[in-house]
């Protein structure tokens, strides 16, 4: 049995997605961790046999410039998916190379980052027919 799960550190994702897609055919697991740690958690899942279905990097925001990331994975596939491992290791490497000043994000910016993360995931849900 394949189990689809979105691993996310975006606190508003679950509520907004379940509102928009009442019949969403995948789980949403919230983890209260930073961007890099979320990627590492996804890597742990890959080592346990998960396959990554959405790209771990954003389309135009540098990793960690946004605090939020959501990644769709398919759990309980047997064996190690080398493509997924390659993808997540590259993403972690990309993430570590950027320089970031410590900063306090204003509420409206936090909201924007959450929206962008959500819309990327919605785009994947829409094209994959998971609703």
């Amino acid at each position: 049995m394949k189990e689809l799960t979105i691993l996310t550190n975006n606190p508003s994702l679950k509520e907004s997605l379940t509102q928009k897609y009442p019949y969403l055919r995948c789980g949403i697991e919230y983890r209260d961790v930073n961007f890099l740690k979320l990627l590492e958690l996804v890597r742990d899942e890959v080592h346990k046999g998960a396959r990554i279905l959405t790209h771990p990097l954003d389309g135009s925001v540098k990793p960690m410039e946004t605090p939020y990331k959501s990644i769709l994975v398919e759990k309980s596939d047997p064996g190690l998916d080398l493509n997924s491992l390659d993808l997540i290791e590259n993403a972690i490497m990309s993430c570590r190379k950027f320089h970031f000043d410590e900063r306090e994000l204003q509420p409206r910016v936090i909201k924007d980052f959450q929206i962008i993360d959500r819309t990327l995931m919605e785009s994947a849900i829409d094209t994959s027919g998971l609703y």
Binding site: L53, T54, H55, G59, L72, M121, S123, A124, T127, S128
Partner: peptide
């Protein structure tokens, strides 16, 4: 295009 879903890519 450049989509998010890996199957789309």
């Amino acid at each position: 295009n450049e989509n998010v879903f890996l199957a789309d890519k």
